[in-house]
Computed example of a mutant assay.
Amino acid sequence: MSLSLEDRASLFEIKWAQQKTGDEIAVLNSRIDAQRDDLKGILDQITILASRIDSLQSLTTPVPSAASEPPLSPARAASSVARKRFGRSKPEGPVSVGGAPVIAAPKTAEP
Rank of each mutant, 00 (worst) to 15 (best):
L43N: 15
Q57E: 11
S80E: 15
Q45H: 10
D23M: 10
E92N: 13
R36N: 07
I25V: 10
S79W: 10
E24W: 05
D44T: 13
R52W: 07
A109W: 12
P91S: 08
S58E: 15
P74I: 05
V95I: 11
D38K: 12
G87L: 02
S68D: 03
L28Y: 02
A100I: 09
V102T: 03
I42A: 09
S58L: 12
V97L: 15
R31C: 07
A26N: 07
E69N: 14
S68E: 05
P62W: 02
S96Y: 01
K90F: 07
P64A: 02
S80C: 09
L72Y: 04
R52D: 08
E92A: 14
A104D: 13
Q18P: 00
V95K: 06
G98M: 00
I103M: 14
T21S: 10
L28P: 04
P70A: 09
V63H: 00
G22Q: 11
L49E: 09
K107R: 15
L59S: 14
E69P: 00
A66R: 06
Q57C: 08
S65R: 13
R52L: 11
A66P: 01
A109L: 13
V102E: 02
P101K: 00
R83T: 03
L49V: 09
A78E: 09
A105G: 08
D37E: 15
A78K: 10
S96H: 06
I48M: 10
